[in-house]
Computed example of a mutant assay.
Amino acid sequence: MSPNDQDIRNRLLVARLPAMPQILLKLIELCQADDAGMAELAKLIANDAGMTSKVLGVANSAAYHRGGRKVGLVQALNVLGADMIKT
């Protein structure tokens, strides 16, 4: 192996992507289930501060939220819809 190949290989090993969080894996599984409700999704998402923040940020943005009052997590999931949550 040439020095350049070895250098590229070392860089790829260092830049390895982290494993998906367990909550995200459970969320994907729950979204694929036909009987999953928004309350169940909210309960799972509430366990991850980053995911909760993203969902609330999008749901309370001008694109989705028309009122002056901020929405909670369950309301945010209803506003966004199941397809957007899966995305």
Score class of each variant (00 low, 15 high):
residue 1 M to T: 10
residue 2 S to E: 00
residue 2 S to V: 00
residue 3 P to Y: 14
residue 3 P to A: 14
residue 3 P to R: 15
residue 4 N to S: 09
residue 4 N to K: 13
residue 4 N to F: 08
residue 5 D to Y: 06
residue 6 Q to G: 00
residue 6 Q to E: 10
residue 6 Q to A: 07
residue 7 D to T: 09
residue 7 D to R: 15
residue 10 N to G: 03
residue 10 N to S: 08
residue 10 N to H: 07
residue 10 N to Q: 11
residue 14 V to T: 13
residue 15 A to P: 13
residue 16 R to Y: 04
residue 16 R to N: 07
residue 16 R to Q: 13
residue 16 R to T: 12
residue 17 L to A: 09
residue 17 L to P: 04
residue 18 P to L: 08
residue 18 P to V: 05
residue 19 A to H: 07
residue 19 A to P: 10
residue 20 M to W: 13
residue 21 P to L: 15
residue 22 Q to H: 13
residue 23 I to F: 05
residue 23 I to E: 14
residue 24 L to N: 06
residue 24 L to F: 04
residue 24 L to T: 07
residue 26 K to L: 14
residue 27 L to S: 03
residue 33 A to T: 04
residue 34 D to S: 05
residue 34 D to V: 00
residue 36 A to E: 04
residue 36 A to T: 13
residue 37 G to P: 00
residue 37 G to T: 08
residue 37 G to A: 00
residue 38 M to F: 04
residue 38 M to R: 01
residue 39 A to C: 06
residue 41 L to K: 11
residue 42 A to L: 12
residue 43 K to L: 10
residue 43 K to W: 06
residue 45 I to H: 04
residue 45 I to T: 03
residue 46 A to P: 01
residue 46 A to T: 02
residue 50 G to S: 06
residue 51 M to P: 06
residue 51 M to C: 10
residue 51 M to K: 12
residue 53 S to M: 14
residue 53 S to L: 11
residue 54 K to A: 11
residue 55 V to Y: 00
residue 56 L to S: 07
residue 57 G to K: 05
residue 59 A to L: 14
residue 59 A to E: 14
residue 60 N to F: 01
residue 60 N to T: 03
residue 60 N to M: 09
residue 60 N to A: 04
residue 62 A to Q: 15
residue 63 A to V: 11
residue 64 Y to E: 08
residue 65 H to V: 02
residue 65 H to F: 01
residue 65 H to P: 03
residue 68 G to Q: 14
residue 68 G to S: 15
residue 69 R to L: 05
residue 69 R to H: 09
residue 70 K to N: 06
residue 70 K to S: 09
residue 71 V to F: 05
residue 72 G to H: 02
residue 72 G to M: 02
residue 73 L to G: 02
residue 74 V to Q: 12
residue 74 V to N: 11
residue 75 Q to C: 03
residue 78 N to K: 09
residue 78 N to E: 08
residue 79 V to D: 05
residue 80 L to Q: 07
residue 83 D to G: 08
residue 84 M to S: 10
residue 85 I to W: 00
residue 85 I to D: 01
residue 86 K to E: 01
residue 86 K to L: 00
residue 87 T to N: 09
